[in-house]
């Protein structure tokens, strides 16, 4: 039998899932590699599990929203990601959607 805490956690995860994609896209207007992206998100208070982040980056790349390239930095090969032109367009649309949703919800949960 799930406890209230379990139910809350499941709902929180569901709520978070969609917003993380938007956050990742927003952070990749500048080029970053996975680790630095995770740090950048953590700095603004968005902790994201690596196990979820890296497959997400690959999925977004396979959808054409990100481009990536391997480069050497700090004597180590790293994969750098950034938004593709399609990704920029999708980010703009998702951002507008987010703002509209946020305005509606602000009124509802006031």
């Amino acid at each position: 039998m799930p406890t209230d805490a379990d139910i809350f956690e499941t709902l929180r995860q569901e709520l978070r899932r969609g917003t993380l994609i938007l956050a990742v896209l927003a952070q990749l207007t500048v080029e970053r590699y996975g680790y630095s992206l995770r740090q950048a998100l953590a700095e603004v208070g968005l902790e994201i599990d690596e196990g979820a982040l890296y497959p997400m980056l690959r999925r977004l790349e396979s959808q054409g929203l990100l481009t990536s390239e391997w480069r050497e930095e700090d004597k180590r090969k790293k994969r750098f990601y950034r938004l593709s032109p399609e990704g920029e367009a999708v980010l703009a649309r998702l951002s507008a959607e987010w703002r509209a949703m946020n305005d509606t919800l602000q009124n509802l949960i006031r």
């Binding site: 996975g34 890296y54 180590r76 994969r79």
Partner: peptide, 16 residues
């Protein structure tokens, strides 16, 4: 995708 993913995982784990 094996080589590509493993290279990325190596980087992640070395960072950790």
């Amino acid at each position: 995708q094996r080589e590509d993913i493993v290279a990325e995982l190596r980087d992640i784990l070395l960072n950790r």
